[in-house]
């Protein structure tokens, strides 16, 4: 599914903002996720406990470039991440605005070009813009990660039609909805549309019971995928009786 790696789970889970390392570990296990996202920061108080989790978890790591606002910062962060995490995978975020956390598509494409040329396997956090998507593929990306809504907002799919168009346009390219998902139903909606996977963090980490929410997301994503594969019925504007009219009694 991603850069030649086949996965069972279509949920990718962020590791930030959990009440404790133990809860994080429970949530990872309950979610069924096989990919977790991580970052690079100056050493903090919880660093050692977190690294223990990384060594315990059997998940593949996807380091991010969160917080980078320029191509240079993102490229340097990616190079540092490749060395320290021992993976060429990089979730490339180049943030364009501090309030919206909207990606800067120009710097994103530039950074993707540099990193793909250096052998990175880039997961770009992008918008639903088709031309930006094409430029990212030209740069060497083999997956696109359009946002659902602004990071951490929990608004769900702000532009479902845009995502639907993206799905139709990029046949065969794995598409991951990254950011903005707040509820399992929203994740299921994206999966029913044929998107390939969901990356989320806050909706699980900030739930009252993160492990239970992680399990709910895992199931919703699986249900949404099965629905997509089963083929949804076409939508109708008018009612259409499901019980046959033939053989209806005359009771008046």
């Amino acid at each position: 599914m991603f850069y030649g790696v086949d996965l069972t789970s279509r949920l990718m889970l962020g590791t930030a903002q959990y009440p404790s390392p133990a809860v994080l570990l429970e949530a990872i296990e309950a979610s069924g996720a096989e990919i977790i996202t991580v970052s690079l920061r100056r050493e903090g108080a919880a660093g050692a406990a977190f690294r223990n989790i990384l060594s315990e978890s059997r998940c593949r790591l996807l380091p991010n470039t969160a917080g980078c606002h320029t191509t240079r910062e993102a490229v340097t962060t990616a190079r540092m991440a490749r060395e320290v995490f021992g993976t060429s995978w990089i979730k490339l975020e180049v943030i364009g605005h501090a309030d919206t956390l909207q990606p800067d598509p120009f710097a994103l494409v530039e950074a993707a070009r540099v990193l793909c040329a250096e052998g990175f396997e880039v997961f770009p956090y992008t918008t639903e813009d088709l031309i930006v998507g094409e430029k990212l593929l030209e740069a060497g990306c083999k997956v696109l990660m359009p946002w659902g809504a602004p990071i951490g907002s929990g608004q769900g799919l702000r532009n479902p039609e845009g995502l639907r168009t993206m799905r139709a346009h990029f046949t065969g390219i794995p598409l991951v909805v990254d950011a903005g998902i707040g509820a399992p139903s929203q994740a299921a909606q994206a999966m029913e549309m044929g998107l390939d996977a969901i990356l989320l963090n806050t909706a699980v980490a900030k739930a009252v019971d993160p492990a239970a929410m992680a399990r709910a997301f895992g199931r919703a994503i699986q249900a949404g995928r099965e629905a997509f594969e089963a083929g949804l019925m076409p939508r109708r504007d008018m009612a259409c009786a499901s019980t046959p009219v033939f053989g209806l009694a005359e009771l008046v």
């Binding site: 962020g14 590791t15 970052s39 991010n64 060395e83």
Partner: peptide, 30 residues
């Protein structure tokens, strides 16, 4: 000074007055 220095280059990388060094560790991320 904003450029990645690989592990293998740390011995050969000399420091000068006023240089900016970042030392980063694996942390939680979304």
């Amino acid at each position: 000074n904003g450029d990645f220095i690989a592990r293998s280059m740390r011995d050969a990388t000399r420091l000068d007055e006023g240089m900016k060094v970042e030392v980063l560790s694996p942390m939680q991320g979304g």
